[in-house]
Nucleic acid binder design. Structure first.
Lengths: 125, 125
DNA sequence: TAAACCGTATTAATCGACTAATACACTTTG
DNA sequence: CAAAGTGTATTAGTCGATTAATACGGTTTA
């Protein structure tokens, strides 16, 4: 069963955050093909958002071929390994590029950036 | 004169992006105390947004003590060195922490994260 | 089979970001 | 001084994200 335990609300529309959350969990292998999604109503209650907002996210995931929804039954994850790698690459490129761009705009030298990242990596372990 | 050349529109409210942009330029030393801000109307035309949106950002910057506005004349940057370092630290902590959190959620090992960042750092030089 | 659960859809309403138009008083500048 | 430029404020309106309430038909399950 797909879990939303690691979901932490951030910036921007919630339905977009949900889509990205699922994709990141898929990249990590924490969500796998065949896994069941909790029902729209359960998710909405878990995250404290409206069922319609959840449905909006699920609609996007279905349009992208990541979940499959049979009306009446729970949705399931349906992606293959090729697609998983593709999603992972896309997310990584976007996130790493963004992080690098920010650090460079702030005038941080590469070495300092590495030590910073190493520091925060340690703190959370 | 404060420049908006490096401003690239991203996610979230524009007035918040403007505030962060100014702070990052300050962190980098590209914006310094005494620098003049372009007028609200000029900025709005530069960025293609409404003057009121620009004013909203400037109001925040003034409330935080980063700019000083005399009605009728251009606003100027007024922060001291202590404040500059404080701003830089705040931004770095937030950005680096966020980036690390994302990479870890995706199950990226530390070594791979470093090589990724190194790669994108190179590409833009 | 029947109740409980599920995906889906519709309609209306709220809220914040942003636009738009305009006005006023102050300062800089020629 | 006078014109142009500037910060500030007000009011109204648009638009998208989100909430809210509700309904319908298919699937699970006891």
């Amino acid at each position: 069963m797909v879990s939303f335990e690691r979901f932490v609300p951030g910036d921007g529309p919630i339905y977009q955050q949900m889509v990205i959350y699922i994709k990141r969990e898929i990249s990590a292998g924490a969500i796998q093909p065949g896994d069941e999604m909790p029902s729209r109503r359960v998710i909405s209650s878990l995250l404290g958002v409206n069922p319609n907002t959840v449905q909006k996210a699920c609609k996007i995931l279905e349009d992208e071929g990541i979940i499959q929804s049979h009306s009446g039954a729970k949705s399931i994850i349906v992606l293959d390994e090729k697609m998983r790698k593709q999603i992972k690459t896309e997310l990584l490129e976007a996130d790493a590029k963004k992080a690098v761009g920010i650090l460079k705009q702030m005038g941080i030298p590469k070495t300092e950036a590495f030590s910073l990242i190493g520091k925060f990596w340690k703190e959370e372990e």
